[in-house]
């Protein structure tokens, strides 16, 4: 006997929701998925009417679903938002150039304006060039730090009020676990917040409308909606330690599917005792971007690349910041330490 949809009790169920275990038909699943994103947006008051919102688009499943759902909800519930796509071109041959093609197709399908900012125009370095100097071990540090700033710079060029990113529930839960494994209290506290407060001039507030959407459901949604997305792993190796958190989360999910939400719930309700030292936010002495140090991480990494000392930004070398700012030469010993590529 075919299983009927537990919501409409009319059509045949085509899937079992990974999040709740309910059997649903295609239409009811779409409805439930979209409705939940809508609830998330409304409950957290993510957007205000007439705001310009940039959707961070990589061409992957999360951002494609995000763009689709945002466009749809904007019409269905009349948010009155002006949406646009924002992409970052890291300059990774065989990966980003292909995925940007997908973004360009999405732009036409959804009829949204698109802005692409590239590492090359912002920093003068492509990821390919960085990897050739840094090697495959710490390249993700460069990419991550540069992307964060690139998105902000792109957002300022587009004059948007907010950026929304495609982070899903799995990503958030994974980050909670990873910060516990690393003992990083400061990040543990902020990694579950759904939107960042407007932190200052150079920074555009960000939010995660898909925060409570399971990765599996995003894939199902994209599959049943036949969305056009790009699915290839980055050709430069993924972050190893995050992999442990990821494995744990996937195992937890297989034991109890609600685990992902439970981890997020835990993360949201952890509160840190007063008096724990938290980094103070300041601005970078060189580019004016937010930074807890004298120089922001992107400037330190860039300085390292330009001076041929790639290790400068890996690990902690705060005491060198003043030297870099005043353009003093580094001592021979310092240079030797920061030069070696085989780390």
């Amino acid at each position: 006997m075919p299983v009927l949809c537990s919501s409409c009790v009319d059509k045949r169920a085509v899937l079992k929701r990974p999040k709740t275990g309910h059997s649903l038909c295609k239409e009811c699943f779409f409805w439930a998925f979209e409705e939940e994103v809508h609830q998330t947006i409304v409950a957290a008051e993510l957007f205000k009417r007439w705001e310009k919102v940039g959707i961070a688009a990589s061409g992957g499943k999360d951002s494609t679903v995000l763009a689709h759902v945002m466009k749809l909800l904007n019409q269905r519930y009349d948010y009155g938002l002006e949406l646009m796509l924002l992409s970052v071109d890291e300059g990774i041959t065989g990966y980003r150039d292909d995925s940007l093609e997908t973004v360009k197709r999405n732009q036409q399908q959804y009829e949204l304006p698109l802005k692409i900012v590239s590492y090359e125009e912002l920093y003068g370095w492509t990821m390919d060039a960085i990897v050739s100097q840094v090697g495959l071990k710490n390249n993700c540090t460069f990419c991550g730090v540069f992307r964060r700033q690139a998105l902000d710079r792109g957002a300022i060029m587009l004059k948007v009020d907010k950026i929304c990113t495609g982070h899903n529930a799995d990503d958030v839960a994974e980050t909670v676990l990873m910060n516990v494994l690393r003992g990083d209290i400061a990040r543990l506290r902020r990694c579950t917040t759904i939107s960042t407060a407007s932190e200052g001039d150079g920074v555009v507030p960000r939010c995660k409308p898909l925060k409570y959407a399971y990765e599996k459901e995003i894939v199902l949604y994209a599959y049943f909606k036949k969305l056009d997305y790009f699915s290839t792993e980055c050709i430069y190796s993924p972050n190893a330690y995050r992999g442990h958190a990821r494995t744990l989360l996937k195992d937890l999910e297989s034991v109890r599917p609600s685990s992902i939400m439970d981890v997020i719930h835990s993360g949201e309700n952890l509160s840190v005792r007063d008096g724990v030292k938290m980094p103070v936010q300041g601005t970078c002495g060189r580019c004016g971007y937010i930074s807890s140090q004298a120089l922001c991480k992107a400037c330190v990494l860039l300085e390292g690349l330009n001076r041929g000392l790639p290790r400068l930004g890996i690990g902690k070398h705060h005491r060198l910041h003043d030297k870099i700012l005043s353009q003093q030469p580094l001592s021979e010993r310092e240079e030797r330490k920061l030069k070696s590529v085989d780390f």
């Binding site: 516990v180 939400m261 835990s266 309700n269």
Partner: peptide
């Protein structure tokens, strides 16, 4: 215990 408490949604009780 800390890690399983987090996984069980007991984050608020951790302390």
């Amino acid at each position: 215990k800390l890690l399983s408490s987090i996984s069980l949604g007991r984050g608020a009780q951790l302390a």
